[in-house]
Design a protein around this nucleic acid. Structure first.
Lengths: 207, 207
DNA sequence: TAATTTTCCGAATTGAATCCGAACAAGCGT
DNA sequence: ACGCTTGTTCGGATTCAATTCGGAAAATTA
């Protein structure tokens, strides 16, 4: 039963532990990140970890919370700028800021997020990508007019990755803000509209 | 140094182990899934696990590969049907099939995928969602004409989830098929075009 | 300063992952 | 069928990391 820190010294210890967690995880990976390691990097005894954290998982959980809070804090001040930009520029800016943020401190956050998302999964995703790419390829050759729309590879990449993650997130979400059908309809419409708009632009240029 | 199975009996053992992995993981969760548990469910001795798998992780890895292969096999026969549907219907169908697939065997796959993706992460994602929703909310109120486009909640949900995952996947991808800028441009254009198309449709209806 | 609370520690405990060598089965040439 | 080699299974013994615990040190309070 972990305690809440009451003194500044203790708060510093908690902070050092979380910070050490990020360092250890990014340097050694999740398997090699032992409690002794974290304690050593933090400059505290192993026992101290358990003064404030239920177990090792709880340390990772605290790290996750810290990461999300930092991300939110990074975005918040951008809000006024973002809202008065064209929407596509805003999205581009947001993505770039997020990338830079993940790359800070020699990519410490990025490395941690990869582990946290069990990205070893990624390697095995290839066969699925192949099948889906095949579907898309055949679709395009079967509808020659669509071959001229721009950014096909990028849209494919986003559609597949985003689609997979969105479905899994949604099915894991205890209280989703939109129904599954709404989400499916949204993704379908988004890509459908994209194609339509592109064809429209192409026709406009042709005339 | 694990061996490759040369006899049918051994192949059956490997299969039983992987299958037991799915059962154990879906029933008990990742923390409570011990090697003895897997061995017991598979009906083999603990030692046998290490005949064909480097370690416990390797079993999970094999499970992941199996899962992806099964998913691809599920989609492949749909290809002919998909390619002659309108693109939005095809996407809807794909998403539904994927959902049903994950739900098979009392959601065994879904439970495993959740664990594999370290879904405890999910709980902490909330603050980030709030900030981003706030940005979107302010944008919408600042551009009243966009308030009438349909599926705003769904597009938001997909944009945020899909965007986050796509960025992280991309930054983890050793050999991405598209550059980061292309991907950012793709996501920006996709949502931008969606809005344009919606506004176009709205204008069309108004006239 | 003494009493009390908070914090820190690291040796000892516990339990799961992994190893290993003996026992059992299958293939194979004679 | 029989011995020999190779493939397979097993579960007790070993190893190593997570967690506990009881007391020392530091801070706070009286």
């Amino acid at each position: 039963m972990p305690r809440k820190p009451k003194q500044d010294r203790a708060r510093a210890t908690v902070d050092a532990i979380v910070e050490a967690g990020f360092i250890a995880l990014s340097q050694r990976g999740p398997a090699a990140t032992t409690t002794r390691h974290i304690a050593e990097i933090a400059g505290v005894g192993v026992g101290s970890l358990y003064e404030y954290f239920e177990n090792k998982e709880a340390i990772f959980s605290a790290m996750s919370q810290r990461f999300i809070a930092d991300t939110a804090a990074m975005i918040k001040p951008l809000t006024p700028t973002l809202v008065q930009m064209p929407i596509d520029s805003a999205i581009r800016m947001l993505l770039n800021e997020f990338r830079n943020f993940l790359g800070r401190d020699d990519g410490r956050y990025l490395k941690c997020v990869r582990h946290a998302m069990a990205v070893d999964f990624e390697l095995h995703l290839d066969p699925l990508f192949q099948v889906l790419n095949n579907v898309i390829m055949r679709y395009l050759t079967g509808h020659p007019e669509t071959l001229r729309v721009s950014r096909i590879p990028a849209i494919t990449y986003i559609g597949i990755n985003g689609g997979i993650f969105a479905v899994i997130r949604h099915l894991s979400d205890p209280d989703p803000l939109v129904s599954f059908d709404e989400m499916a309809d949204g993704l379908a419409s988004m890509i459908g509209h994209y194609i339509e708009q592109e064809l429209l632009l192409l026709r406009g240029v042709a005339e």
